[in-house]
């Protein structure tokens, strides 16, 4: 009774929204890179937004289901198929025991999220089920998934059970190994862009950069280097230079902090970033736009657009409000709200 990994894909990990409260002990936050797609996948199977999901990167896994499961896939398009038949993203899907769920290379985007009703049941470490690969703890055995690993779903919510029952009944009448809801989260809810425009606030050392550097930073585009991963994206583009050398005392950094090492090529710190840093901070990506970044791949380009702190916080508030409305919509679709 579980799900078995037949082939693990490129970099597949268990993630939730991150391990907060331990940065002062040097422990990174981690968590899903695209928290919008990740939370949406959870909502679609009736989970708490923080439930553990699988994060798939560029090339997804092949999974054998040893029990019936209610699943949802959001994020990058890895063309998921159940026993060779394509299933669609952004909606609840019921899959029968004994089926093989196969993901391919991402056609669009970089990271997909696979949620199961009840969440993937791995033991929480320091209050989180996220995988800290570098320190080797959390998630499934503190590492990326491997062939023959088995993961168990947790206990589904009332809503998750309701969806599963509806879809199981439908697949019985259709004699099919899987069935999916006719309704879905419209793709425009996800702000993904190929030529991404990312909103950025000025960082503490912005004014220490040369006038030319400051102009280039917001006017030119930067390309993601190949050494871009969950720790950070290395960017290639116009060199950013300081007016004069700066000796900074190391201090806390944040997810989205854009720091500039002496080579003048910026680095955006992401989910698996270190807790402290000492390079000059030219900017910070608005939290609301981190999901867009999460779906970029090496070679893609980004353009930074300046926003104020107020604008960044307001945009985040609006995104959260929209997410709450979708959550309500999902519950109403289930006919669940009325029946309660």
């Amino acid at each position: 009774m579980s799900m078995e990994v037949i082939s693990p894909g490129l970099y597949t990990t268990v993630q939730d929204l991150g391990r907060y409260g331990y940065q002062r002990h040097g422990i990174i936050v981690g968590g899903a890179m695209d928290t919008l797609a990740m939370r949406m996948a959870n909502l679609l199977v009736g989970n708490d937004p923080n439930a553990a999901v699988l994060e798939l990167t560029l090339k997804g896994p092949v999974l054998l289901l040893h029990e019936d499961m209610l699943l949802a896939v959001c994020g990058a398009d890895m063309q998921p198929a159940v026993d060779g038949k394509r299933i669609r993203s952004n909606r609840p899907v019921w899959v029968k025991k004994g089926s093989t769920l196969k993901f391919a290379h991402a056609k669009k985007g970089c990271r997909a999220y696979l949620a199961v009703a009840g969440g993937w049941d791995v033991p929480p470490v320091m209050g989180s089920r996220s995988t800290n690969v570098r320190a080797g703890f959390g998630g499934a055995w503190g590492r990326t998934l491997r062939e023959k690993d088995r993961l168990q779903p947790g206990k589904p919510s009332e809503l998750g059970r309701l969806f599963a029952e509806q879809l199981r009944a439908r697949s019985m009448t259709q004699h099919a190994g899987c069935s999916e809801m006719g309704w879905f989260v419209p793709p425009h809810v996800f702000p993904y862009q190929k030529e991404a425009v990312i909103r950025v606030m000025r960082g503490a050392e912005f004014d220490h950069f040369t006038k030319e550097s400051r102009q280039h930073f917001f006017a030119q585009s930067y390309q993601l280097a190949t050494q871009s991963d969950r720790m950070g994206y290395r960017l290639e583009g116009p060199e950013l230079a300081l007016e004069s050398p700066l000796e900074l005392i190391s201090a806390a950094v944040s997810t989205g902090t854009i720091q500039v090492p002496p080579n003048g090529q910026p680095i955006i710190l992401l989910a698996d970033r270190q807790t402290v840093g000492g390079y000059p901070k030219i900017g910070h990506v608005a939290t609301v736009d981190l999901p867009i970044l999460a779906q970029l791949r090496p070679g893609d380009r980004v353009q930074f657009q300046e926003v104020s702190l107020r604008e960044a916080q307001q945009a985040l508030y609006e995104q959260e409000t929209a997410l709450q409305q979708i959550r309500l919509g999902i519950e109403i679709n289930a006919g669940w709200r009325q029946s309660k």
Binding site: R24, Y317, E320
Partner: peptide, 18 residues
């Protein structure tokens, strides 16, 4: 408040803007 991180000369406090 989400958490706080003491540094050499700073304390950084993370909060939930929403």
């Amino acid at each position: 408040m989400v958490e706080y991180v003491p540094g050499y000369t700073t304390v950084t406090v993370y909060y939930d803007p929403v």
